[in-house]
């Protein structure tokens, strides 16, 4: 484990990515405790304030403290994105592994169908699903998970197929190992690494997809402190104070870049042969 961490932190991507993601996760866990103000407390007298000692990042159109809102909104934004990505990955990995394992015509049929599903842009797919289920945070989570599943299925399948062809799997088959053992002990450890990498990178897409859904009015609902929603609400008041637009944007960017960098770092660190 320590050896793995050393390898991860050796590359600049891995080091910066780890730092940013740890920072974000710390905010997710401790954010609400650290927030200096109640994120939903309106102060009509303190609207559109610039950054100051009192309000570190200034206040928004209702006089709410932006810094507090960001600290608290991290949960809504990041946790949702991570959960949705994990759910989408699990569904996709299941379909992809099954497809690779079944092989033959079943595999072809599943993959053709996945291709067809992928011809609907994932944002549109998510929109349709949320519209179907009604707009709420949880439904947005389901929508993003479903929208990610086909892509993850494809990746899982291609990785599983390439592992499936390796001689160590052949050796296990020739030895008469059970399918369960082959999948669990021979294939899975080798399949999982690339999937973790892909999943990490996709968290950043999920963050953006969630924000976009909130922007279109189909994700989190006001007065929630979800970052995408904050940007979306700020649009009408951005002429009054650019800060209410900029800070949540920066927060989104940090999460997206952090997970992207971490994914690239993991790709190198998880390769057993380097």
């Amino acid at each position: 484990m320590t050896e793995f961490l050393k390898r991860l932190l050796k590359t600049p991507q891995g080091a910066i990515g780890t730092f940013l993601v740890v920072l974000v996760l710390a905010i997710v866990v401790f954010g609400p405790m650290l927030a200096p103000y109640d994120p939903e407390k309106l102060s009509p007298l303190a609207r559109y304030k610039g950054p100051s000692l009192m309000y570190w990042l200034g206040t928004d159109q209702y006089g709410r403290d932006i810094f507090s809102r960001l600290l608290i909104g991290a949960r809504a934004t990041v946790v949702m994105a991570v959960l949705a990505t994990i759910a989408g990955t699990l569904i996709g990995a299941l379909i992809g592994t099954a497809s690779a394992f079944l092989g033959g015509r079943a595999d072809e049929l599943i993959m053709r169908t996945i291709d067809a599903v992928m011809s609907i842009p994932s944002l549109l797919f998510a929109l349709l699903v949320v519209n179907l289920l009604g707009s709420s945070t949880v439904n947005a989570l389901v929508a993003v998970a479903i929208a990610f599943a086909p892509g993850m299925a494809r990746i899982t399948r291609s990785v599983a197929l390439s592992v499936r062809k390796q001689d160590y799997v052949n050796a296990a088959i020739a030895r008469g190992e059970s399918s369960a053992y082959i999948i669990r002990r021979e294939m899975l450890p080798n399949v999982i690494a690339p999937i973790i990498v892909e999943m990490t990178i996709r968290v950043s897409f999920a963050v953006m997809l969630f924000a976009t859904l909130s922007f279109l009015g189909l994700g989190a609902q006001p007065p929630a402190a979800e970052w995408g929603l904050m940007v979306s609400e700020a649009r009408r008041y951005m002429h009054m104070s650019a800060g209410i637009l900029i800070w949540p944007s920066v927060a989104i960017a940090i999460v997206a870049v952090g997970f992207n960098l971490l994914g690239d770092g993991l790709r190198d660190a998880l390769n057993p042969r380097t």
Binding site: F215, V231, L245, S249, I252
Partner: peptide, 11 residues
């Protein structure tokens, strides 16, 4: 890849 389109568009 850091920002969704609606944010970049707004900015």
């Amino acid at each position: 890849v850091a920002l969704p389109e609606f944010v970049t568009a707004t900015i």
